[in-house]
Design a protein around this nucleic acid. Sequence first.
DNA 1: TTAACATTTAGCCTAAATGTTAAACGTATT
DNA 2: AATACGTTTAACATTTAGGCTAAATGTTAA
Lengths: 93, 93
Amino acid sequence: MGLQQTLKALSDPIRREILSMLRKGSLSAGEITERFPVTGASISRHLSVLKDADLIRDNRQGKYIFYEINTSVLEEAMLWMASLKGDPDNDQK
Amino acid sequence: MGLQQTLKALSDPIRREILSMLRKGSLSAGEITERFPVTGASISRHLSVLKDADLIRDNRQGKYIFYEINTSVLEEAMLWMASLKGDPDNDQK
DNA sequence: TTAACATTTAGCCTAAATGTTAAACGTATT
DNA sequence: AATACGTTTAACATTTAGGCTAAATGTTAA
């Protein structure tokens, strides 16, 4: 985990779009796949990248696997960006 | 430009470290290179990625080229992340 | 203008990322 | 248990990224 994994996961447009979709509520892998012009296998791998980065969580319900967003991990990335804007004499690492 | 280029540029640890270094003031390409275990040519390419993303600006002074950070472009990335955390019914796209 | 130095660009190589199809897996239904 | 359905995993092809060395470019100084 960590900043590296977070930013890497966010650097792909499909993965960002998936996160945007999940903002409105959880969706199954199939529902997510429907909205992209790539195969389910590709989306599945994108989902696993997002999951490894802890940007999404999954929970199975019967034969469906539902994905939901987890934004807590964005905190670190936002703090890092904010620190870049800040005065280096004042505060953080 | 745009979010894609910004996040792509930020997804590499060397490029992030370069930005952190530049927080404290501008540095020449050579000074930046000294601090990494890779060749000047590699750093030069990293600098061009950061520059294309408008995360840094350069200005030549004699035979040196000095780089400085430009944080304004981080705004968009931070806003995007913030929007992921927000209520989709309330506000933005 | 030649030499020296700082930096970038080009060409090549390897590794990582992304896409595809086909096979495997997990669950529900019959 | 067999089939069907949703999803993931494996194997492979292609593209992209990052590193290196060598050549090119820009600038200063002799």
